[in-house]
Every structure is written in structure tokens, then in C-alpha cells.
């Protein structure tokens, strides 16, 4: 995956909670066997409605999605992360994420930023007031800054995941540095497990 240090850009307010991966990319788009081309499926049912926020031309070109709690619940489909990235987003800010979606983000370089709901609401207010409001996601310091809204907030992320983001590291190669331990574990598995 590509390395991520600092993301600077503008945000789209997706003022909904429990945005499930069936909405992010409906199942009809999952039939491809390639890893690209999913941007047309992103929120495809909601984009059919003229008043959906991604159809609002004031937010065209924004690269940070700012959503409500429990973002990415439901299906494990990694296509949801691919679709969000391929549409042009580099980070998602929300009060909480589903575990699988969050894991999928970290395998692809899409930054999942967890901040309290009041902070999300303050960002929504700022970007609704001025869609050009600058948002900075700083992976080096694990914090976001929205100067226009006086927001300077740290977000949680374990050291290992931060390290992988900063260096764009491949998980499999990292795991294979422990191959002797894997082999040793395998020799001790009970016979009935084969």
C-alpha cells in the first residue's frame, strides 16, 4: 500500500449513523474479479437521489469523508474501502467504525480517524458553513486539525498500524519475518486438528 504521512484537503458531511457497507457499495457491484473500477458503485443507490451530499457540487473534489457513528457496519466486503478510495477519498472521520471495515482501511492506506461525536458535529458545521474549510489529517502525530473550527484533536491508532501507514508496509512480508514461529506452532497442533 502507499505510504501516508499528512493528508490535507476538504471534507464532505455524510450526516448519517450506521452507514453499512451495503450502502457504501451495494452487492450488485461485487461481482467483478478485479480490484479497480469500484468508484461508480460508491453509494450508488443514494447517489440516485439528487439531494444526496455527494451530488452537491459544493463538495466536488473533497478528499475526506466525515460521517456519523458506526460507519462501515455489516458485510466484510473490502470493496467498500476500494470504492471510497477510488472515488477520491483519502480518509474517513467518524465517531466509531465497525471492526472489519477499520481493519480493511488499514490494509489499503485509507485512514480511519476516530474522534468524539461532538468533534464530528463541529466539523460538519464548519464544512457546511464553508465547504473549502481546510482539514489536516496528520498520521505522524496521529491528530486532525481544522483550524477554522479550532479543532486540534488526537485520534487513537496503535503504534504498529501507524508505522505501517507511514511506511506503506505490506502485512504479509512483516508476518513472514515470523515464519519460524509459525512452523513451530504448526508442529505442536493436536493430531485431531490435522
Amino acid at each position: 500500500m502507499k505510504a501516508v504521512e499528512v493528508i490535507t484537503g476538504t471534507g464532505v458531511p455524510l450526516k448519517r449513523s450506521d452507514v453499512d457497507t451495503d450502502q457504501i457499495i451495494p452487492a450488485v457491484w461485487l461481482k467483478q474479479v478485479e480490484r479497480t473500477g469500484f468508484e461508480i458503485g460508491l453509494f450508488s443507490a443514494w447517489r440516485d437521489q439528487q439531494d444526496f451530499v455527494l451530488n452537491d457540487e459544493r463538495y466536488v473534489g473533497a478528499n475526506i469523508l466525515v460521517a456519523g457513528p458506526a460507519f462501515g457496519v455489516g458485510s466484510s466486503r473490502e470493496h467498500a474501502v476500494w470504492a471510497i478510495q477510488q472515488y477520491g477519498f483519502d480518509a474517513v472521520i467518524a465517531p466509531s467504525f465497525s471492526d472489519i471495515f477499520r481493519n480493511n482501511c488499514t490494509k489499503n492506506g485509507l485512514v480511519p480517524v476516530v474522534v468524539p461525536e461532538v468533534v464530528v458535529e463541529a466539523i460538519w458545521a464548519a464544512i457546511e458553513d464553508n465547504p473549502q474549510t481546510s482539514i489536516v489529517v496528520d498520521m505522524r502525530q496521529r491528530k486532525i486539525e481544522v483550524p477554522a473550527a479550532n479543532i486540534d484533536e488526537r485520534f487513537p491508532m496503535d503504534d504498529a498500524t501507524q508505522h505501517r501507514f507511514l511506511n506503506g508496509l505490506d502485512d504479509i512480508a512483516l508476518t513472514m519475518t515470523h515464519v519460524d514461529e509459525i512452523t513451530s506452532f504448526e508442529t505442536n497442533r493436536p493430531a485431531w486438528m490435522r
Binding site: S76, R77, E78, H79, V81, I100, N103, N104, K107, N108, D171, I172, T175, M176, H178, V179, I182, E186
Partner: peptide
């Protein structure tokens, strides 16, 4: 798990 993790398990069984 997601597809990247599927690949990881296929390759490493971990």
C-alpha cells in the same frame, strides 16, 4: 475478514 486478510491467511495461515 476482508480480502487483504484473505490473501494474508492464504499466504501465512495466520
Amino acid at each position: 475478514i476482508g480480502t487483504s486478510e484473505v490473501e494474508h491467511v492464504l499466504a501465512t495461515q495466520t
